[in-house]
């Protein structure tokens, strides 16, 4: 079992796994996103307080939950990479990082748009908005550290350390911001009381969450495949797998010669 898991440290094996999973993720993601969003936006009952504007929940909540989830997945990959020295774990880490960052951005964006009609302002220093904003900074930190390194193996390790420092910090940040918010929350803005959500609203939301999760998985898999090929361009297995299709190797070598000649 352990040996089988460990075999995914090899890029060719990881690539094979990506190939297998890609279509499943694509099918589930497309189906549940279509069902969830059509159901949620078109057929679910509207909220008696917020009217139709509450429907943004079907985008906002999944993206907010999965922004956090993607960060945890990224940090777990970093841990695997640091402890067992899997190259592929770092590839996964950097494949999912921008996807997670975009999810965080979507949740902030939709949150802000939801806030306008509800709170009467685009931005308030609400506890959840604030910690989501900090999460976005953490993502950007990891990504910019990764891009700052020339050697991508070194970059992976460095960004991995930062991802783990971040994931240890997320609960602390969450708690501190929550606490700060209750201290400073003035009486002018009261949070809208949240009635427990009705079942007809709940089902499409659940389907949307599944859709978003598999969509993130799908995009990450495609990015991961790209990353593996780009990084392993010079290895024999890539040439073997793609046969004559890939003359990239020669193209890259050419480019290198030209650079060297200058």
């Amino acid at each position: 079992m352990w040996k089988w898991i460990n075999s995914f440290a090899k890029p060719e094996k990881a690539y094979w796994l990506c190939d297998v999973l890609q279509n499943w993720f694509a099918v589930v993601a497309t189906a549940s996103l279509v069902i969830g969003i059509v159901w949620g936006l078109g057929f679910a009952p509207s909220d008696y307080q917020q009217g139709d504007s509450f429907r943004i929940i079907y985008i906002h909540v999944p993206s907010a939950i999965l922004a956090m989830g993607a960060y945890v997945a990224m940090a777990i990959a970093a841990l695997v990479g640091v402890v067992w020295q899997w190259r592929t774990a770092f590839m996964f880490m950097i494949a999912i990082a921008p996807v997670g960052a975009v999810m965080t951005f979507i949740s902030l964006f939709t949150g802000s748009f939801w806030g306008k009609p509800m709170w009467g302002t685009w931005w308030i220093w609400d506890a959840r908005l604030t910690s989501q904003l900090i999460l976005l900074f953490l993502y950007l930190g990891v990504i910019s550290l990764y891009t700052a390194f020339e050697d991508k193996q070194q970059a992976g390790k460095a960004a991995g350390v930062m991802a783990m420092v971040g994931v240890i910090n997320i609960p602390i940040i969450h708690f501190s911001v929550e606490w700060w918010n209750t201290l400073h929350q003035g009486a002018t803005i009261t949070k809208i009381g949240k009635p427990s959500i009705a079942l007809e609203m709940y089902w499409p939301l659940l389907i949307c969450i599944v859709g978003f999760a598999t969509f993130i998985g799908w995009v990450t898999i495609v990015r991961m495949k790209n990353e593996i090929i780009m990084r392993d361009l010079h290895r024999p297995w890539v040439a073997k797998r793609f046969g004559g299709l890939v003359d990239l190797e020669a193209a890259v070598a050419n480019e290198k010669d030209m650079k060297g000649g200058q």
């Binding site: 020339e150 050697d151 991508k152 193996q153 990084r231 392993d232 010079h234």
Partner: peptide
């Protein structure tokens, strides 16, 4: 030894 994903 590998540097920048190339075998040295």
């Amino acid at each position: 030894c590998e540097k920048s994903d190339r075998q040295l």
